[in-house]
Simulated scan of single mutants.
Amino acid sequence: MTKLDKPIRRELAIGDKTYTITIDPAGVKVVEKGRRNGISLSWADMVSGDAGVAAALQGSVEK
Rank of each mutant, 00 (worst) to 15 (best):
A56M: 08
V47F: 07
K33E: 08
G27E: 01
A55S: 06
S42F: 02
S60K: 10
G52P: 03
G59M: 05
A55V: 13
N37P: 00
K63L: 03
K6R: 14
S40Y: 09
V31K: 00
N37K: 15
E62N: 10
V53P: 00
I39W: 03
A13N: 10
L41G: 04
G52M: 08
G15W: 13
V28R: 00
E11H: 03
K3M: 11
G15L: 13
V47T: 08
R10L: 09
M1W: 10
N37W: 06
E62C: 03
K33T: 15
K3Q: 14
L4Q: 04
D24F: 03
K29W: 03
V30Y: 06
D45M: 03
R36Q: 13
L12V: 11
S40C: 02
Y19W: 13
I39E: 03
R36N: 08
T20K: 09
G49T: 01
K6L: 04
G59T: 12
G27T: 01
G59W: 00
I8V: 13
I21E: 05
S40M: 02
V47W: 07
M46A: 13
T20S: 06
E62R: 04
L41W: 06
L41Q: 02
M1P: 00
P7F: 08
K29M: 11
A44M: 05
R36T: 07
T2H: 13
V53T: 07
G59A: 09
I39S: 06
S42W: 02
S42Y: 00
L4G: 10
V28L: 15
G34C: 04
I14T: 01
S40W: 00
R9E: 15
W43T: 00
A13R: 15
D45F: 00
V61A: 14
A13V: 13
M46Q: 07
A54D: 00
R10T: 10
T20Q: 12
S40F: 13
I39Q: 07
A54P: 00
S40H: 09
R35Y: 05
A55M: 14
L12F: 01
Q58E: 12
E11T: 08
V30I: 13
I39M: 14
Y19L: 09
R36D: 11
G49C: 07
V30E: 05
R9K: 15
A56T: 10
V47Y: 08
L12M: 12
G49Y: 05
D5S: 14
S42G: 12
R36W: 06
D50P: 05
S40P: 04
T18M: 10
M46P: 07
A56N: 08
E62Y: 05
K3L: 13
R9I: 11
L4E: 03
R9Y: 07
K6H: 12
K17Y: 09
V28P: 01
T2Y: 12
P25F: 14
A44I: 12
R35H: 11
E11N: 10
G38H: 05
A51H: 04
I23K: 05
I39L: 15
Y19C: 02
A54I: 03
G59H: 08
L12Y: 03
L4F: 10
A56E: 06
G59S: 15
S60G: 07
Q58I: 07
S42C: 00
L41I: 11
G52A: 13
A54K: 14
K6C: 01
T20H: 14
V47P: 01
P25C: 12
E11K: 15
V31Q: 03
A26G: 01
S40K: 08
V61Y: 11
P25K: 12
